[in-house]
Design a protein around this nucleic acid. Structure first.
Length: 295
DNA sequence: GAAATAATAT
DNA sequence: AATATTATTT
């Protein structure tokens, strides 16, 4: 009886991966309403069944890129006098993909992926593939992974360290996201190889599992009282009735995707566009708040 | 050359 | 502080 069977890793992956239900409802709308409207591309209208199949082919990875071929916009001569300063900026911002906001749910997917992949295979590209979040780039994951690793390191160092808990503001903030993350049984993924993959996360597992979201919730509440927290964790469906979807699993369809098609309900406002400071610092951020995600 | 990681910039 | 972007390494 060998429990160490080593089938194709993806076969095993499917077993260990979060249940289909977890994966299915995930959807991510990467295209902001402004962007869509600005370029007159079919936007996921709330009242209209989302033609997800329609634009998820070309314009999902990088909306702006698809639009670059648009012959319609050019010669941005808005204000002849020193207009390039302002007008160009606006367009420039649109061409730039908005900053990705790592919501707890998105982060959970990230952690799940890392956990299932194991340290060895937990590299940006692989993680990204496993997460299967449409629009998520390797750079996005790499950046997040970097921070995540730093977080883990800090945890390890502080675990053994005797002194009190000189937690800096930075740590406190990152913990909001990382420590509160619904980590289950983090790192026991096996790579394709034998030994040499253990250790590392094993250390941080116990302490993290203990904390969980209790403190996180409490802390979040506490902070809300004192500061106005910008991250809207709350459920967006508090008032109306309908609930939004979560993310959208990438439909690469090149075989690896196993054909997970989840043309679920429409994404009315699965994105949140946050404009900061109104005029000067109009930063478009992509905020995805899933709803039907387990916690 | 692509991808990963480290370093730096916004 | 949180991500992005660039630089360096693999």
């Amino acid at each position: 009886m060998i429990e160490e069977e080593e089938p194709n890793w993806f076969t095993r992956r499917e077993e260990e991966l979060p249940s289909p239900q977890e994966l299915m409802p995930l959807s991510q709308c990467l295209i902001t309403p402004d962007l869509a409207l600005a370029f007159d591309i079919p936007t996921p209208n709330p009242s209209e069944a989302p033609g997800l199949n329609a634009h998820e082919t070309a314009a999902n990875r990088h909306p702006a890129q698809a639009l670059l071929g648009m012959p319609d916009f050019e010669s941005p001569n808005h204000s002849s006098t020193a207009g390039e300063g302002s007008g160009g900026d606006e367009l420039a911002r649109m061409l730039k993909r908005p900053r990705l906001v790592w919501t707890p749910q998105l982060h959970k997917r990230f952690v799940d992926a890392v956990a299932h992949l194991g340290i060895k295979n937990a590299v940006p590209k692989t993680i990204m593939q496993l997460m299967s979040v449409d629009g998520l780039t390797r750079e996005n994951v790499a950046s997040h992974l970097q921070k995540y690793r730093l977080y883990l390191k800090r945890m390890q160092g502080l675990s053994s360290a005797g002194p009190p808990c000189p937690m800096s503001a930075a740590d406190a903030a990152t913990e909001q996201l990382f420590a509160s993350t619904p980590i289950h049984n983090p790192f026991l993924a096996r790579g394709a190889s034998g030994p040499g993959q253990e250790s590392f996360i094993q250390f941080m597992a116990p302490p993290l599992l203990q904390h969980h979201q209790h403190i996180a919730a409490a802390a979040a509440l506490a902070q809300q009282q004192f500061y106005h927290q910008r991250q809207h964790f709350g459920s967006p469906m508090a008032t109306g009735g309908g609930y939004d979807n979560g993310f959208q699993t990438r439909t690469g369809g090149s075989g690896l995707g196993t054909g997970i098609s989840s043309p679920l309900a429409a994404p009315p406002n699965s994105y949140g566009e946050g404009i900061d400071s109104g005029s000067s610092g109009g930063r478009r951020v992509l905020t995805l708040f899933p709803s039907s995600s387990e916690d």
